[in-house]
Write a protein that binds this DNA or RNA. Structure first.
Lengths: 133, 133
DNA sequence: CGTCACAGTGACGTTAGCGTCAACTGCTCT
DNA sequence: AGAGCAGTTGACGCTAACGTCACTGTGACG
């Protein structure tokens, strides 16, 4: 009994400024079924849900996941939660992603340590005047 | 006084199997000046240095860095170390990359925590029978 | 009522990062 | 010498993730 339009929606421009993306990007994500903004006539209105998803998308991208990878796990974050097979699959995938991310975290720690060592070495050799905290 | 060929070199096939990449990839990296294998006639021989660089390349890729990003910092890892402006630039860039990686680490921790919470929530709702350690 | 700024829809262009194929070039082994 | 095989060089192909452009639609406003 609440089929009307949510009040806290944003236009495409507002979205772009809020998340530093272009309209093209948002339309592209919609085409790829990552976002599902409300359509008023032809115009798009992005809901709270869209914003949450967009944040997750952008985050995922920074970790090197593809949009397709991201799309497949996004559903897990939907609160409506039917006990569908769809959702079960999303869950399974998410478990795998979690493992990947933890692996990546370990690797990242290693890479950071390595890089720090290289920098320290370069400094020790007197190559640079940098002050590292 | 050691201009001859290093003994611990690898052919392109050996490299491919060792690092799970294709010949195409290695040639591509060479074309992009990420690797500089020795050329015997037309054949390539990959040195210890190439292997170290390749490992760094593959690692960088997993964190979402572009090959160009990677190329620009790789020089820092070269042990020969002239005090060139080149090297100074590599150092400066590396400092920036380090900051990026630490940001990424923080985000990754957040993302992991989020995802774990979602999974726990899904389990609590009885959506799945998974046993998480 | 004109226009004007913003939104939308194709459709084509672009870049990175390789895949794929064809046509050589050398070895090496028989 | 011929066969075979790993390796090389173009050259073209392809996908993801958008950019860009040309055109259409439309609500607001003087």
């Amino acid at each position: 009994m609440n089929t009307d339009i949510p009040t806290d929606v944003m236009t495409i421009r507002e979205m772009c400024e809020a998340y530093e993306v272009t309209p093209r990007t948002l339309r592209y994500y919609e085409a790829k079924e990552l976002l599902t903004p409300i359509r008023i006539g032809t115009r798009r209105l992005f809901t709270r849900r869209d914003r949450a998803r967009l944040a997750l998308i952008l985050r995922g991208k920074r970790f090197g996941f593809s949009l397709e990878d991201i799309r497949q796990t996004l559903d897990l974050y939907d609160r409506d939660g039917g006990l569908t097979a769809q959702r079960q699959k999303a869950y399974d995938l998410a478990v795998k992603r979690l493992a990947e991310m933890e692996t990546q975290r370990a690797e990242l720690d290693l890479a950071i340590a390595d890089l720090k060592a290289e920098l320290a070495d370069a400094e020790a050799k007197g190559l640079v005047p940098r002050r590292a905290a």
